[in-house]
């Protein structure tokens, strides 16, 4: 009964933490744009949270830079279980144009495990919503 309730509430209110790990700001504003009236992800119960301790889903934008690597791991560990990571944008998936730069490790998956990849440079807000809904469907099943 209780597990059923937690499962249901988890599906209805996935709170997200938006984390920039070295992105160019393009994906970041598109993630924020997804929260504003035109796209409005709040329909799915998604709220942007400021601290990892309140979040269920970490939305990562940008390639992992060497300076951010340790912080990224720390923020991942601060997030309570069960936690999910969405890699938003081509940089978060593979490094995109920054691939080969001396201070870039590569995609987010080089540092922490990733559940959903959302491609695009930058991603459209529609794609962010699609990614989140795919994650919710994954949880359902």
């Amino acid at each position: 009964m209780l597990t059923k309730l937690t499962h249901w509430s988890r599906l209805k209110s996935p709170w997200i933490l938006h984390l920039n790990t070295g992105a160019c700001n393009a994906c970041d504003i598109e993630v924020v744009a997804a929260l504003t009236p035109r796209f409005d992800v709040e329909r799915f119960g998604i709220l942007l949270k400021a601290t990892p301790r309140h979040a269920d889903v970490i939305v990562c934008t940008g390639p992992a830079t060497r300076q951010m690597k340790d912080r990224l791991i720390r923020i991942y560990e601060q997030t309570p279980d069960p936690k999910f990571v969405i890699a938003v944008g081509a940089c978060a998936m593979s490094g995109c144009v920054y691939r080969g730069a001396y201070n870039v490790i590569g995609g987010i998956d080089q540092v922490i495990p990733v559940d959903v990849y959302v491609p695009g440079c930058p991603v459209r807000p529609d794609a962010v919503i699609d990614g989140v809904v795919k994650l919710l469907n994954k949880l359902k099943g």
Binding site: N20, G22, T65, Q67, M68, Y98, G100, A101, Y102, N103
Partner: peptide, 11 residues
């Protein structure tokens, strides 16, 4: 600073 430094100028 430096959390977002990617090394663009070198690239």
């Amino acid at each position: 600073l430096g959390y977002n430094h990617r090394g663009l100028e070198k690239l």
